[in-house]
Design a protein around this nucleic acid. Structure first.
Lengths: 237, 237
DNA sequence: CGGGCACTTGATAGTAATCAAGTCCGGTGG
DNA sequence: CCACCGGACTTGATTACTATCAAGTGCCCG
């Protein structure tokens, strides 16, 4: 993060900030002011944007692409906590406390990020309480997801976990399709396994099981079609 | 929550608000103003403060006592998400969105709460951005705990889960003691089991195992002494 | 002193992890 | 265009762990 942060060629500051939900309450004039505070930087697939235990200079906003936030467990396994994509922010925990990053952030594909320095951002929230509310709203969503994840992880219910991750991806990365909803998976089988905390073989088995049950249709390794969304929802709650 | 909210006999508004971390940046004058907005209410042990799916009128602050926040899983098991005690707040998710409560809140003992209505609180944050920052800080802490919980739940590592809950309770409910740290457990074995998502028998077994290993010493069902804190920390990370 | 409740302890069974082969697919080079 | 190669995925067999079922045991309170 201490490397050269050059302006990214793919986006202009104004557009970038305007696309982000947390700034949706700002008008053009405010956005223009904000644009000056933003630093851009591109990352290649597999490149680390932040490393657990290192310092973060500010808030990171995903402008294009996808990233995963993960930790390595004591057993050496990767536990993915979040998958973020365009418009999401990350690194917020370090805004208030002078805390080190609590997880690694890695680009899952070619990704452009915008960064706002800590103090600039704090000032921004003081000036525009609505931005603070937006941040809180997003934090509530994350808490919600984690609370749900814990509920399903607690009950030893691997099936429910797979189903809810499929529904989550259907929401974020799905397109409508004559047979149902076509989902382009941001993660490999192993990635999904690391996300929901099971072995990768188990993911394979459960997915083929779901296919046999007619709930989904696998289309190679990166795509699948959700045919019976209700069946997935049902077993989640 | 729509029942009679009477002023509680055990506390005066000013003191109540002053004791709460999120209001620590307010001076006496502001606290006095705030006091007028607060509604008090006592709850008996076992009484429900909020029910999943019902409306919440505002932010709840625990003034005295302890509460648990939990959901019932599809298998009919209770999944405890949080244990809150004096100075903690809860019900924040409903402040911004007009959302129903996402979990039940139940008093674990005789408990007094303070409540601030939604709109009053939003106004308060707009007027005092520092309160918003305090709230965010606490939300970050909760995210942290949940992220850690997921990490240890993902790895099938029941021991790590027990150890981290012991460390958590040692922090919040522990007192120093010649042999180590005396912890007064807010939850029964079953409660602990529901908190970390295992069977209650497993909690018993692991605790006796820890006692045999000389790491803790059980003192009846409600108290224990942590003798070797480092051993617990070690296996958590 | 007796009853009830929470906790402990033991035996069994189920589920997912792990270990171990295969199989499929995309890419590369002939 | 086809054959080969490597990586990711699938499938199968075994193992390990925890849930579940089932008795006990101890403690608190009347």
């Amino acid at each position: 993060m201490t490397r050269d942060l050059k302006s990214c060629p793919n986006c202009h500051g104004e557009i970038c900030a305007g696309r982000v939900p947390i700034f949706s309450t700002l008008d053009m004039e405010d956005l223009a002011k904000l644009a000056g505070l933003i630093i851009h930087r591109p990352y290649a697939k597999g490149e680390l944007i932040a490393i657990e235990g290192s310092d973060l200079e500010g808030l990171i906003i995903i402008n294009k692409g996808q990233v995963k936030a993960y930790r390595i467990t004591r057993e050496g396994k990767e536990q993915i906590l979040y998958v973020f994509s365009e418009g999401d922010f990350v690194g917020e925990k370090n805004l208030l406390k002078d805390q080190k990053a609590t997880y690694n952030i890695e680009a899952l594909e070619e990704t452009n990020i915008c960064m706002i320095k800590k103090n600039d951002f704090k000032q921004l929230i003081s000036d525009y309480p609505d931005i603070g509310f937006k941040i809180m709203e997003e934090l509530f969503n994350r808490l919600d997801r984690l609370e749900n994840a814990i509920k399903s992880m607690g009950t030893q219910n691997v099936e429910a976990r797979i189903n809810s991750v499929l529904l989550e991806f259907a929401d974020k990365y799905g397109k409508d399709h004559p047979k149902g909803r076509l989902v382009i998976l941001p993660l490999s089988r192993e990635g999904i396994a690391n996300y929901i905390g099971v072995a990768r073989e188990t993911v394979s088995r459960k997915l083929t099981f779901l296919q046999d049950a007619g709930v989904i249709e696998l289309r190679g390794n990166k795509k699948l079609i959700i045919i019976d969304k209700e069946a997935l929802k049902q077993s989640v709650e």
